[in-house]
Nucleic acid binder design. Structure first.
Lengths: 207, 207
DNA sequence: GCTATTTTAGACCAAATGTACTAAATTTTT
DNA sequence: AAAAATTTAGTACATTTGGTCTAAAATAGC
């Protein structure tokens, strides 16, 4: 019996992606669905609630991806798969990334959750890098915090490559996703050892 | 006699920075200035015209900076000064960067100009890197396009560090600007030669 | 079948926004 | 000083939006 609720989320999701969060009103979503706006309000009191529900979908997709992509012995391969999958999810919900600042500004609760998740992601990268160093794939730091800064760059790139692509890229979605997943991997390249670079080349030839 | 026009730009600039472009209407700017909204419209027909005028200010500030910061023999030092100055300008007009995707979407002409300017910036970085390689400050590429990708990362970071800071940073403006200017420089670090890294350390100790 | 609950629609309101039109006030030009 | 231009304000209108209230329709539970 929640067919309506699901349809609302689908339509909101689509319109947000097409027109941006700010340009889509409750009434517009309702009109697109050909239901009354009061009906929509019955299910979601505000646009914020819609965004929160869609954010929940993003999290669930991310958790599902995390379970699928088992980080195997080859760190770079796992990173590559996880990045491609993660970037695909972000692209599917691109309105969220493009309006990220706006959404975080409007919704303190979501903002807080987002910061927590980023913290976890950061620690994950930290672990991954430490393992890669142990395995001789990445070099040691030249100065303290060097990898902490790399992780910051990873975060900013991950958060905003979609916004950048909205301005600079005209290719089809899959190409854009692959290009930027590759670009993220390139951030790691200069830190790789000879052994690491070899693994990197093997990986690229395989895909 | 263009006092009004200037006051309008100042107030629009301030309100855009404080509340974001979407949340500031012609009428709100007029109300803040305590002039009639029709008077404001007389000077600027639409919000787009206001944004274009402010963008022109950004360009003029950037040109002025370019003339001041002479790229001396020390490539890293020039880069550091230019980055700090440029990032300060971007921060002064942070509404433009935070609403970048929105603005580019709404104004095809501005979008086109923006792409042209980015092209010039890209070539500037390319020249700078080539010189740094000749001077033995940066290493040769390990694979083709390696530095082209670095420049892409520089572009994305430059475009969106302010958006990132709006979400993650709570420090005062000057600290945020310096931190991110430093982060941009860090993108170069792993490509530096031993000689380049030495120059980099000298530079950081000086500032 | 009847009742209670959930879902849906319609009417209405107040605020904000862009826009157009008119006219007054001010400044500039002659 | 008079005429022409510019700048400024006031009014009014249509649209959009979020929001409330009421009631009808559909569904579920008994």
């Amino acid at each position: 019996m929640k067919k309506t609720k699901e349809k609302i989320l689908l339509t909101a999701h689509r319109l947000f992606n097409e027109q941006g969060v700010a340009a889509v009103s409750i009434r517009k979503i309702a009109a697109t669905l050909e239901i009354s706006h009061t009906n929509l309000i019955y299910h979601f009191k505000t646009k914020q609630e819609l965004i929160e529900a869609l954010h929940q979908q993003i999290l669930e997709a991310a958790i599902k991806l995390n379970q699928e992509v088992r980080m195997g012995p080859n760190m770079l391969e796992g990173l590559w798969e996880a990045t491609k999958g993660g970037f695909r999810i972000l692209y599917d919900y691109r309105f969220f990334m493009i309006d990220l600042v706006y959404i975080m500004k409007e919704n303190k609760q979501l903002h807080h959750r987002f910061l927590e998740i980023e913290q976890i992601r950061s620690e994950m990268y930290q672990d991954m890098i430490n393992k890669a160093i142990q395995q001789g794939l990445m070099r040691d730091v030249y100065y303290p915090d060097e990898y902490q800064q790399l992780i910051t760059h990873i975060r900013i790139f991950s958060d905003f490559w979609i916004s950048s692509a909205a301005i600079y890229s005209s290719e089809d979605p899959q190409t854009v996703i692959d290009q930027h997943a590759k670009l993220l991997l390139d951030l790691f390249f200069p830190y790789l050892t000879v052994k690491g670079r070899k693994a990197y080349r093997v990986l690229l030839e395989a895909s």
